[in-house]
Design a protein around this nucleic acid. Structure first.
Length: 892
RNA sequence: GGGCGCAUAGCUCAGCCGGUUCAGAGCAUCUGCCUUACAAGCAGAGGGUCGGAGGUUCGAAUCCUUCUGCGCCCACCA
């Protein structure tokens, strides 16, 4: 035998991937077939393959390959996301570490040059890596969110929203990342409970009298205070009406204001109001007409507006530390207490987010949310699992305006222009258009100054939030804005989106909004949410924790099919998966099992002479049984695909191939050692085997393609990837049941061998005493031969009396006897029988209790009642048999 | 503070519009096998009163109530 006993995936996988690509199987162009479309969740252009990608893309590939085998025009669009802030952070670090350059010292143009250099060098590695996994993307469609056409679409949408009044520029309290020096959306801020200190600080009254003690976390911001707030009904502070307090150290007077917003229970019941540095204070400030003093710069340092010079220029945390000492010395600090509070940090830089008043661009979400919410509630867009509807709904019902500007360079520069003559960062004239020429026209019209030239305008410095481009992904990759009647009309809406539930708000919700807002239609029919991949301690796998295995190493170790199996075998939709190499090991072992099944069937001598009648009957029955089981499995597979229960589908096929095919069928038809197999049986087996390969192909594409070709000589183009998925036919259930009974008999005989330490090769006699009510198994041609072969029997015949020296077992309601010429331990046998009797009697009682219940007999469906009657008959029969056997042991 | 979800074998989970194949799968464990496809394997076996309590029903892992213990999302009281 020339084939190795181990399956070696390495060379096979690259060979077949190249073959598929060369033959153009991944390519899709519109034709008469029904389309099946998936757009990849575009990974960060500078990303590398991690476990989450592997899971996600394996699922997409399974769905795409299944659709392709089902005869659909399967189109999987790959691509990458420019990932504005994440990529810019990487580029900045790279410049600092490799080129000793600081972003601040570079012009926008040269920074972008470097960024593109970086992108050309490291970008798209992940797309290469996806090939190793077997991803059957249409690579000719590879898209990038900053491609020329995509860029154009993003600007077009910006202008469109602006003109329709759904986009505005405004000064708002925003989340500021002082490290990246950009605004963040609410979704980019992650809150976690952390240790903090509450400072109790004494504010004197203007007239020198004892004032109040306020509690604050941020003593460094007291110089931005513009008021102190108390509850109007708080008797402790009633005397403060009309009074002013002095900000410590600088003695600037601030009014006392009264507002029910203040919680009397918290701290001292008195609150310093700092509108520039706290969103709630900002609201209070507006309500009470207070001024704003902004003492923190965009980098998180105390700025010149702070009237207390000793802390100017310090970082806010350094300033806080300093303030503690200063206030202690000055006698203003009453006490500090430790407490736990939620601190918001930037998702990307982990910097503590600074609430900051800033002029930004916002999308008004009120009209976008409505249709997108309804689509999901009405299941026009279906979620798998559906429970994510809840999460989606709570978010969509509480939409707030979306801040889409970012103070970054890497991204889509905002298509808005301002007059050079007007100050920066002020709410001035703005001209929104996709090109500067157009903006100039608008500027001339609106200002009435026809002498304006492009030189009088300057473009907005900011770029757009990454998600303000990726929300157009399903539309833009098919050029749906430029050519709505082209490919877009064929491929859109896409069939299914496969993504992690962690970006349901960032991306999924916004794509649905964009779909309805710009195209009036859903972007996808279904959304399959994957879980997070976690380690055994349930921690999310991440690079920073270092708990994520190297994806490519995993493929090297277990083969792509092995890894795919490992991920899929425990990945129900929406459920997190606890990843363990063991899972991949199972997958690798399964590959090896398939490989060895191939070695077996390819190793037989073939005979053109017909098989002897016993073998012919046996093999024919085996094939009918196996193919019946296969039909059942296929029906389950179809149902599971319909509801995206992919792991169930895979496990069903796995069990079928391993147990039914390898453990039972191949053993049934396996010729005696050295003997040839008849051609008919072999051909049937090769056909069945080939069919399983097609059925398994979506899950394990490489090995199935390899075996498909090893099983038979195939004409060029006759590849597994391009077959028709087997359609489930009828199953002969009665026949399948008989063979299942035969398997039970075989297992019982094997058990007796185990118990009595009888060598596997020692042939035994088996006798059956049938109950009149039961199915006559021996009537089924071939069944007796199957039992004789697998149980290794000399004979298998009916009898009326029990033979000597026999051990007995019961299957159904029939009694079986195996002749074993060894001394019987009557005591032990009796004990076992009495245990069995007790169980059967208990079972009988429960069945009879039901049958004697009038309401059960009249209330339950006839089928259920009949079944209980059958159970009762069988139990009575079994009990009778056990009694007879006990009798025998008692009176030998 | 508001909301959602989960609890089934030692571990990870499936089953959950009630009744046949309802107590399952994989891994782990135990026993025996290097049996000429495969030790990455083969043949067997043990293991759970389906978190607790109550209710609905002829019948509950499955539906309802409640308790307990976890997890997550949203909000953000200085």
């Amino acid at each position: 035998m020339s084939l190795s006993t181990r399956y070696n995936p390495a060379d096979i996988e690259t060979r077949w991937y190249t073959h598929w690509e060369e033959r153009g199987y991944f390519r899709s162009v519109p034709d008469a077939r029904e389309p099946f479309t998936i757009v990849i969740p575009p990974p960060n252009v500078t990303g590398v393959l991690h476990m989450g990608h592997m899971l996600n893309n394996t699922i997409q590939d399974i769905l795409i390959r299944k659709a392709r085998l089902d005869g659909k025009n399967a189109c999987w669009v790959p691509g990458t996301d420019h990932a504005s802030i994440a990529t810019e952070a990487k580029v900045v670090r790279w410049l600092r570490e490799e080129k000793q350059l600081r972003k601040a010292d570079l012009s926008r143009e040269s920074f972008m040059d470097y960024a593109y250099q970086w992108k050309d060098k490291y970008g798209g590695i992940i797309l290469q890596q996806l090939r190793r996994l077997g991803a059957s993307c249409d690579w000719e469609r590879t898209a990038f969110t900053m491609d020329e056409g995509y860029y154009r679409d993003v600007l077009r949408v910006f202008v469109d929203l602006y003109r329709r009044g759904k986009l505005y520029r405004g000064r708002r309290m925003v989340n500021w990342d002082p490290e990246a020096r950009t605004v963040l959306s609410n979704e980019e801020v992650l809150y976690n409970e952390e240790n903090a200190q509450l400072f109790h600080i004494h504010y004197r009254l203007e007239d020198g009298a004892d004032g109040v003690v306020i509690a604050t976390q941020r003593p460094e911001t007291i110089f931005a205070d513009v008021a102190v707030a108390v509850h109007p009904d708080d008797p402790r502070y009633a005397h403060l009406h009309g009074k002013r307090l002095l900000v410590p150290l600088i003695d600037r007077p601030v009014p006392v204001i009264f507002d029910t917003y203040v919680d009397r229970e918290f701290g001292t019941g008195a609150l310093k109001v700092t509108p520039a540095h706290d969103p709630n204070d900002y609201e209070l400030g507006i309500k009470h007409g207070l001024p704003v003093i902004d003492t923190i710069a965009d980098d998180g340092r105390i700025n010149d507006a702070c009237a207390y010079t000793p802390i100017v220029g310090l970082d806010r945390f350094e300033a806080r530390k300093r303030m503690k000492g200063i206030l202690e010395t000055s006698g203003h600090l009453v006490k500090t207490e430790d407490y736990r509070t939620n601190i918001g940090r930037s998702e990307r830089t982990n910097a503590v987010v600074e609430p900051r008043l800033s002029l930004q661009w916002f999308v008004n979400m009120s009209s976008l949310g409505e249709p997108a919410l309804r689509a999901v509630l009405d299941e026009e867009v279906r979620f798998f699992p559906p429970s994510f509807q809840n999460l989606y709904r709570t978010w969509m019902e509480n939409l707030r305006d979306w801040c889409i500007s970012r103070q970054l360079w890497w991204g889509h520069r905002i298509p808005a222009w301002y007059l050079n003559s007007e100050p920066l960062h002020q709410e001035t004239h703005v001209f929104v258009a996709t090109t500067v020429e157009e903006a100039l026209d608008i500027a001339r019209r609106e200002t009435g100054n026809t002498a304006l030239t492009a030189a009088d305008l300057r473009q907005d410095d900011d770029v757009l939030d990454t998600w303000a481009s990726s929300w157009l992904w399903p539309i833009s990759v098919f050029d749906g804005f430029e050519k709505p009647d082209g490919e877009f009309a064929y491929y859109y809406p896409t069939s299914v989106l496969v993504t992690g539930w962690d970006i349901i708000f960032f991306w999924v919700a916004r794509m649905i909004m964009a779909g309805y807002e710009f195209k009036g239609r859903r972007p996808f029919r279904d959304v399959y949410f994957t879980g997070m991949v976690r380690d055994k301690q349930r921690r999310k796998m991440s690079k920073s924790l270092g708990n994520s295995p190297d994806a490519l190493q995993l493929i090297d170790d277990y083969g792509a099919d092995g890894v795919r199996y490992g991920l899929m075998s425990s990945a129900a939709a929406g459920n997190d998966i606890l990843f363990d190499d063991k899972l991949c090991e199972n997958g690798r072992n399964f590959c090896n099992k398939l490989w060895n099944a191939l070695r077996l069937v390819k190793g037989w001598e073939v005979s053109d002479a017909p098989a002897d009648p016993d073998a012919a009957r046996r093999n024919a029955l085996a094939a009918r049984w196996l193919s019946g089981k296969f039909q059942t499995v296929l029906r389950d597979v179809e149902a599971n695909f319909q509801s995206y229960r992919l792991s169930e589908a895979l496990l069903g096929l796995y069990g079928f191939v391993w147990d039914d095919f390898c453990a039972w069928y191949l053993e049934m038809i396996k010729p005696d050692f050295g003997a040839p197999i008849d051609r008919e049986t072999l051909e049937t087996t090769l056909d069945l085997f080939s069919g399983f390969m097609v059925a398994l192909h979506p899950f394990m594409p490489f090995i199935t393609e390899e075996l498909w070709h090893q099983l038979r000589e195939r004409a060029p183009g006759d590849d597994c990837i391009a077959q028709h998925y087997p359609r489930a036919g009828e199953t002969d259930n009665a026949l399948v049941r008989r063979v299942e009974t035969a398997k039970e008999i075989i297992a019982k005989v094997r058990d007796l061998r185990n118990q009595h330490q009888i060598k596997p090769k020692e042939a035994l006699e088996l006798w059956v005493r049938r109950n009149d009510n039961t199915d006559d198994l021996l009537r089924e041609p071939g069944l007796r031969e199957i039992v004789r072969k697998l149980a290794v029997l000399k004979s298998f015949e009916p009898c009326t009396d029990e033979p000597d020296d026999s051990r007995s077992f019961i299957v159904g309601a029939d009694q079986y006897h195996v002749v074993i010429e060894r001394e019987i331990d009557a005591e032990a046998e009796s004990l076992k029988l009495r245990e069995e009797l007790a169980y059967q009697e208990g079972f009988l009682r429960s069945v009879q209790a039901k049958l004697q219940n009038e309401r059960f007999v009249s209330g339950a469906p006839a089928q259920v009642v009949d079944n209980e009657r059958k159970k009762e008959r069988d139990a009575l029969e079994r009990i009778a048999i056990i009694h007879a056997l006990l009798e025998k042991y008692a009176n030998p």
